[in-house]
Computed example of a mutant assay.
Amino acid sequence: MRKLYLPLVLSVFLGACATKGSAPYLTSEPLAKPDSVSNYWVSTNNEQPLKYLTYEQKESCAEQNIIVKTKYLIDSNGDVFNVEIIEANTDAALQRLVEKSLQKRDFQPSKSNIALQPVIAYSKLEMKCEQEA
């Protein structure tokens, strides 16, 4: 039993270290309207919300141009929090997928952001929902 205890504790600890915190980490007050988010943070992975669509959702939005305007916080660790849909021309289910994809996005500080300045970012996501053959 003791042989299993150490690997179990170690895996739980490593898993906890790898997950994002439940609250944003802020080294200072976030900039509300930065001139350009890329002056502070650069996206390292760009999760596409359409990859989470079910077959039925893809059928219902086939050939639509989807536009979603969002607001979110990039904290001092480069993690995304407080995703808010400002405007969208799609249903609530797809809006939740956009929120999910933004929350999975990671950012690295730009070369000029040595202070890890958090920012409130605004994005306009434009996607074309293509029907699979």
Rank of each mutant, 00 (worst) to 15 (best):
K128T: 14
S112P: 04
K33Q: 04
R105W: 11
K71R: 11
A115V: 10
A88C: 11
C129H: 01
E29L: 06
I114N: 11
V83K: 02
K71T: 03
D79I: 10
A121S: 14
E99W: 01
N89V: 12
K104H: 13
Q103D: 12
D106L: 04
E99F: 03
Q117K: 04
D35E: 15
S43D: 01
L102P: 05
N46C: 04
D35I: 12
A121M: 12
K100V: 06
M127H: 10
V9S: 09
I66M: 03
A16K: 12
K100R: 10
Q57R: 04
K33W: 05
S76F: 06
P34A: 00
A23W: 05
K128R: 11
A93L: 10
E132R: 10
A62T: 08
N82F: 09
E130A: 06
V98E: 08
N46E: 09
R2L: 15
K20C: 02
Y25E: 07
V83C: 04
A18P: 08
Q64W: 01
K100N: 13
N65G: 05
L14I: 04
K33D: 02
V12E: 00
S112F: 05
Q108Y: 09
R105T: 15
R96L: 09
K58W: 02
Q131A: 08
Y25T: 05
G15H: 06
V68E: 00
A115G: 08
G15P: 06
Q64H: 06
P24K: 03
T90C: 15
N65K: 09
K71P: 01
Y55R: 03
S123N: 13
K100M: 13
C17Q: 12
I86E: 13
Q48A: 07
S123I: 05
P24R: 01
L4K: 15
K100W: 11
E99R: 04
V42K: 03
L94C: 10
T90H: 13
V12C: 06
L116V: 13
L94T: 13
M1V: 14
E99C: 05
K3C: 12
E87N: 10
A115C: 06
S28Y: 02
R2A: 15
Y40C: 02
S28K: 09
K58Q: 12
R105F: 09
A133T: 12
T44P: 00
E84F: 02
V119Q: 06
L102W: 07
N77D: 15
M127E: 07
Y25H: 08
S22R: 08
N45P: 02
L14R: 04
G21T: 12
Q108F: 09
D91P: 12
P49V: 00
G78C: 05
Y40W: 09
L26Y: 00
N82M: 13
L125R: 10
A23L: 11
D79Q: 14
L14W: 07
K69V: 05
A92M: 08
V9E: 04
F13G: 08
Y40S: 00
F81I: 05
Q131C: 05
V98P: 06
N77Y: 14
M1R: 13
D79V: 03
P118F: 11
A92F: 07
P109N: 06
D106E: 08
K111S: 14
K111D: 15
V119T: 07
E47L: 01
Y40V: 03
I120F: 15
M127W: 07
E99H: 03
I120V: 15
